[in-house]
């Protein structure tokens, strides 16, 4: 309860800063429009105002301040403009419409989920191999760790174009990018998890004369789950970023990344912000689902902390 109050007040402060910041950033544009509409503006003439800072303009023209929160193409849209745009493009538009954010979010989400599934599956398989084969551990693991420090997302444009030139397009190229972004965190986390049983536990399995397979299924796999879920949370967020970035280089027509790109081409700031918030909401929902699964699974298995 106390935390909720604290969170709410932090959010309120952020919103307040946002509204205040929108005034100096948008005021020049608002004044130009207001002057055209016949409003008394100080100083008159857009050229006169060019070198005056936003704060001074706002102080000289307090009557124009409300206008800065209602512009059509503001430099910084006010929070309620973004909220209205989000509402209009999700609830009021038909889902099949090209202008519906739900449609675009689904395009991105489907690539994210497919890629995440592929990346996680391959990551788990490789981790099992690494844990059971010393030579694989020694040869692959250092590269998996190093690969976390390099911006592999730089490969994204090339993957899209190369796959396109050999005839693969649509959801697959984006899913490939999502897959390799979620792949390495899962490998590293899963290897750590499969190694987490301590000496005492493996010795116990040994005294039971357990085979390598049953040690894996009954001890290693269950105890790796907390580590796996931690990686999955990182992985799904990375997958979403991968799918969004994967939509940029080819100028894709659908998807949240395409909305961002189109918005930046045409100066539709409200559209950019609403796509950004849609991506943020999507990310938090995905991470939330993984966390909820984590809590339920770990509780059922008696691993909850």
């Amino acid at each position: 309860m106390k935390s909720l109050l604290a969170i709410l007040s932090v959010v309120l402060v952020i919103l307040a800063i946002w509204y205040v910041a929108a005034v100096p950033m948008n005021i020049a544009g608002s004044l130009t429009q207001a002057e055209r509409g016949g409003m008394e503006v100080n100083p008159p003439g857009a050229a006169e105002r060019r070198d005056i800072s936003g704060w001074v303009l706002a102080a000289n023209n307090p009557q124009a301040i409300p206008l800065t929160w209602a512009e059509k193409r503001p430099v910084l849209p006010a929070p309620h403009q973004v909220a209205v745009e989000l509402w209009e493009t999700t609830v009021l538009k038909k889902v099949t419409s090209k202008r519906s954010l739900v449609y675009h979010a689904w395009v991105t989400l489907s690539a994210t989920l497919l890629g995440f599934a592929i990346g996680t599956g391959l990551g788990i398989v490789l981790a099992v191999g690494i844990v059971h084969s010393k030579v694989m551990d020694m040869s692959v693991m250092p590269w998996a760790i190093v690969s976390q420090t390099i911006p592999i997302i730089a490969l994204a444009p090339m993957i899209i174009v190369v796959l396109y030139s050999i005839g693969v397009q649509g959801i697959i190229p984006k899913a490939v990018i999502s897959a390799y972004l979620s792949f390495f965190p899962v490998v590293v986390g899963m290897v750590k998890g499969l190694r987490s049983p301590d000496r005492m536990q493996t010795d116990l399995m040994h005294t039971y004369n357990a085979s390598k397979t049953s040690t894996f299924w009954k001890l290693r796999l269950p105890s790796s789950l907390p580590y796996l879920f931690a990686s999955l949370k990182v992985g799904i967020a990375a997958s979403l970023v991968g799918a969004i970035v994967g939509e940029l280089p080819t100028g894709a027509r659908a998807g949240l990344g395409a909305r961002l790109l189109a918005g930046s081409y045409y100066g539709q700031t409200v559209q950019i912000w609403s796509a950004l918030f849609a991506a943020a909401i999507l990310a938090s929902v995905l991470v939330g689902i993984v966390s909820m699964t984590e809590r339920n699974v770990l509780r059922k298995m008696g691993l909850a902390r």
């Binding site: 106390k2 604290a6 969170i7 979403l240 961002l260 918005g263 930046s264 950004l276």
Partner: peptide
């Protein structure tokens, strides 16, 4: 303590967001 309770969840939330998406806005600014 108040700030920590308020900022940490918001910060954690923001750290998981696709912040790369702010790029077009910041390039515009």
């Amino acid at each position: 303590d108040f700030l920590r309770r308020g900022l940490l969840p918001v910060g954690n939330f923001a750290a998981a967001l696709p912040i790369v998406g702010t790029a077009p806005i910041l390039v515009m600014w």
